[in-house]
């Protein structure tokens, strides 16, 4: 059961629905709260993610969902999208909600770190230790793969595109830090989800 006052439905201004519609997800109103999405969600079985609730909160314009972890528990398995009887692209909507969350400054630290790796190396999982080069060589491959890792010019292109789309501003990296000279405005990333990071970092696992 949702524990909202009934009049919230008529009183709230719904910027979430407006944003989704503007981005092309005009079907957002069509959700009938049948729960098929939550029923098939492998993440919802073990986390607080309830896709049906996310959809309802979107319809009601309750923006808490942008600052809570739930939308980040989705493993993007697309089961909800496949099974939705109204054929709503639910997984894609969740991905769009993540975009809105990031625009508002809500991003987990581990995700921010991933972004930085990508911005500086062009790879989400870069070669960051010489053992990976040796491993490649063991299997008869070139030490460095023929990707941006081998081509400075291509890495430069990727960085210029990240600046062009203002991705670096989104995650608070100055273009000069990336080695590209151009003045950009720097915004602040709030790390409001810090409490969850410590939990994650309790796991002392050999990091690949």
């Amino acid at each position: 059961m949702l524990d909202y006052e009934p009049d919230i439905i008529t009183n709230c201004t719904n910027t979430l629905v407006d944003s989704l519609k503007e981005a092309g997800y005009s079907e957002v109103d069509a959700c009938i709260q049948c729960g098929t999405c939550s029923g098939g969600c492998p993440s919802g079985e073990r986390t607080a993610l309830k896709v049906r609730t996310i959809m309802r909160k979107v319809q009601l314009g309750i923006e808490d969902i942008l600052s809570e972890n739930d939308i980040w528990y989705c493993s993007t398995c697309y089961t909800c999208l496949e099974r939705c009887p109204r054929k709503l692209p639910i997984t894609d909507m969740i991905i769009f909600l993540r975009n809105l969350a990031v625009q508002k400054g809500f991003m987990l630290k581990s995700h921010l770190d991933l972004c930085k790796k990508f911005c500086f190396s062009g790879h989400g999982v870069p070669i960051d230790d010489k053992k990976w080069k040796e491993l490649r060589e063991f299997y008869g491959l070139k030490k460095v793969p023929p990707t941006v890792h081998s081509h400075e010019k291509d890495l430069d292109e990727v960085k210029r595109l990240l600046i062009s789309s203002k991705f670096n501003e989104l995650i608070n990296i100055d273009s000069e830090e990336l080695g590209i000279k151009k003045k950009v405005k720097v915004s602040i990333v709030e790390e409001t989800l810090e409490k969850y990071i410590t939990e994650e970092e309790k796991l002392k696992i050999s990091k690949i």
Binding site: A23, W72, C74, S75, T76, I95, F96, R98, N99, V102, M107, H111, L114, C115, F118, G122, H123, G124, V125, P146, T147, V148, S150, H151, K153, D154, L155, E157, V158, L161, L162, S164, S165, F167, L170, I171
Partner: peptide, 29 residues
Amino acid sequence: VDMEGASCCPAPGVFRGFDIDTWLIIATR
């Protein structure tokens, strides 16, 4: 045949979740 100078795809759940347009631009590159 190798794709010289290719980058991260970028990952569809991760980077697309941060900014859809950036994901699309880098993927298209």
